[in-house]
Nucleic acid binder design. Structure first.
Lengths: 207, 207
DNA sequence: ATATCATGTGTACAGTTGTTCACTTGATGT
DNA sequence: ACATCAAGTGAACAACTGTACACATGATAT
């Protein structure tokens, strides 16, 4: 029953996934990454790749799954820290930006995948966003916010909120991570966007 | 003074640019396209490429310039057809969707470039979007819409409008162009997004 | 008429790619 | 103890890549 091997099971697998993310973080686009390149970056022989993935696209799909975990962690942290309605937006945006900076490579992969060349990866990321928007709608109901909206209108508004934040990704990622001033600018701008949407939702279908 | 050559000047250049777009339209990501591939698609010998472009990234930059022309054409058409304020959003979105369908490859390139691997292309597209947002702000002032907003607030709102439409790109492009029903869905959803933003802008800083 | 120039062609080369195959090795189940 | 299995290795392959060079050709300028 001892599950201790010379090499931890799945170790190479992880090395390959983080290697791909590292390459993305270095500015390479995921669609242009090859098997040999990943294995080289991971310090592994090319043949090993096939022990874990069918192709680079397959690796991408599994990265999407891990991205889902990152997003869920972020959501959990937001729920724990954002309790009262005021400052809700600023806090949430702050947590988002912090997570992007802390998981830069993951979010770069996400931004790339939205218009990537693998249809499956694209759909995976899109699906994560839908899930996120759905959870957000639940939370707003729970906080008794936008209670006057129909379910479908609330979904629509949350979709727009999530899209807006997602687009900010490209802003954040195009900034040097050390440029605190510019990061702060994006944080403020994104907050204003979200406030605008919330105000719009607040007046939706109610004069 | 006769400028008629055996081959029209710039003909191969155009062939190479449309070849790159064609590849993108076939689902390939621009970042993964190579010189040999483009020239093959264009029916030209690989060496010819260097007569016109330094690298594939260079070609991308020139594609951004042409993309700018496409966007300006679209803007002109919108200005000609959207005269009165009511139905402004529906008409604009309709024109946008029509242009995307008519220039699918160009807009695919745009969507890819937003998170692409060439920093220059990325900045180019971003700059086109800023220009677009600026022009939109002018138009709204001209139409006496959102007149109560300060210049910077109006710019912010227009930025959000443009981003929202840009994000819809990924929706449209992920749909089969013949699927009229889904296209119509995206058109409606995008219009609702924009209405939401406009309502928010209408109540911004004014109770 | 002749030199210059922009454009396109063909050949060549070294480096990289994806993928296959036969092989080792250490852990696991019986 | 022994067979099985998942995981990693190294050598080999043909195909493809970017790029350089020498050359052809037709238009233009003097």
């Amino acid at each position: 029953m001892a599950n201790v091997q010379r090499r931890r099971p799945g170790e190479t697998r992880e090395k390959l996934m983080t290697a791909a993310l590292t390459l993305v973080g270095k500015g390479r686009h995921f669609a242009s990454i090859g098997i040999r390149e990943v294995t080289r970056q991971a310090g592994v022989v090319p043949t090993s790749f096939y022990r874990h993935f069918r192709s680079v696209d397959d690796l991408g799909l599994q990265l999407v799954d891990e991205l889902g975990l990152v997003l869920r962690r972020m959501m959990r942290e937001a729920r724990a820290n954002v309790l009262q309605a005021d400052k809700l937006i600023e806090e949430s945006v702050g947590i988002f930006v912090a997570h992007v900076l802390a998981n830069r490579n993951f979010f770069m992969f996400m931004a790339q995948g939205l218009a990537g060349e693998s249809r499956a990866v694209q759909e995976g990321i899109r699906s994560e966003m839908r899930f996120f928007a759905g959870e957000l709608a639940n939370d707003l109901r729970r906080l008794k916010l936008l209670g006057h909206l129909s379910d479908s209108d609330l979904d629509m508004a949350c979709d727009l909120l999530v899209r807006t934040v997602a687009f900010s990704l490209t802003d954040i990622l195009s900034i040097s991570p050390e440029d605190d001033y510019q990061i702060e600018q994006v944080r403020k701008l994104t907050s204003r966007f979200l406030q605008l949407v919330m105000i719009g939702a607040g007046h939706w279908e109610s004069g």
